[in-house]
Nucleic acid binder design. Sequence first.
DNA 1: AGTTTGACAGACTAGTTGGTTTGTTATTAA
DNA 2: TTAATAACAAACCAACTAGTCTGTCAAACT
Lengths: 206, 206
Amino acid sequence: MNATVEKTAVRNADATRQKILDVAFEEILLKGYQGLRVDGVLKKTALTKGAFYHHFGSKKELGHAVIEEVLRPWIYERWITPLQNIDHSIDGLIELLKEARDEMTACELHTGCPLNNLTQEMSPLDESFRTRIVAIWDEWHQALAEVLERGQRLEQVKSSLKPENVARFLIATMEGIIGQCKCYMSDAAFYDAGECLQDYLESLRA
Amino acid sequence: MNATVEKTAVRNADATRQKILDVAFEEILLKGYQGLRVDGVLKKTALTKGAFYHHFGSKKELGHAVIEEVLRPWIYERWITPLQNIDHSIDGLIELLKEARDEMTACELHTGCPLNNLTQEMSPLDESFRTRIVAIWDEWHQALAEVLERGQRLEQVKSSLKPENVARFLIATMEGIIGQCKCYMSDAAFYDAGECLQDYLESLRA
DNA sequence: AGTTTGACAGACTAGTTGGTTTGTTATTAA
DNA sequence: TTAATAACAAACCAACTAGTCTGTCAAACT
């Protein structure tokens, strides 16, 4: 009767694991890792303890997997890969800033940046989380610094400034702005501070 | 024999309440509000359940009290009151930035800004926390905007820029930088990005 | 001095939470 | 076909956690 439906619904280990990861990512985004409940994930996925502990050894192991397999790709897709498509450093970064602002959905205003959330919560609490998180920041930072270096070589960006420092500043500022939006539950902060950020980016032109 | 010692040690309601608040503030700073345990506070204060629930109706009520009675004064002392002593806007802000950097103790590098921590953790989770927290951000923002406005009147600051936007940008950037330090467990990020922040402040001069 | 009340002490409880264990069923290799 | 194993289901458990309740003792009030 519904043999094909059953076939796709029943027993797909990879899909099960991925579903757990996706729901856990959402839960962490909403409530933090400490607020994440294994039972809550199971309820949302309609799975059981047996399934969970078959795929993950512990809640902490789930946390690590979420960082590596969901959070990292998320950051790449959203922030790092777009950097690769920039041809003019300043123009490109300003364009990315605008895109980020427009992509800030109502939900995201509420939840903030998943990487920064986890950083602020877990860095002081667990070294195994911190090292994994810091690796992602480093990759982002390096990618951004390279965009600026390239801009310097192409004489689009002032040669006097230090790409590594500016990259740190830009990332910190972006995250700071997103964090402010989170508490005001409005994108006004993004528009207001974003205006200044744009001015700063303009000031980097060669 | 030690009558006076006993007298000060035994039964001092205000001191008891304050001790709970202070320890709770530390615990929240370290582990977040969700990571804060009532039992943990009692252990650190050498008090009991009876004492705690005599002074606070619930854990949430403690959280509110910590915000109003410990966190708010902390932010004022550290960030808002110093703004009042500024006579030249730009010079003063740069000076404050340097002081902030020098005051970043090893411990604070690890824990970050208590206001931003609580903001990122609790804004999406509890509206009663968010409203109290946003009030403090607003007070800080207003105080900083006033410094910039005054600078404009005294023709120290460019008249073209919007003090409210710049104030938002500066707060966001400061918090973003502190947040980065937290995950790198180093003040290098503060120095690197701080250099750019100083450049930005310089660019605000009339 | 006696009574009341504020400021606790500490045992207890109900609900939660991460994790275990045992059992069952679908899938795959022989 | 069958044995082995992967992929779960679900009852169960021990530790933890916020909050309650009853009792005690010191200080203030009369």
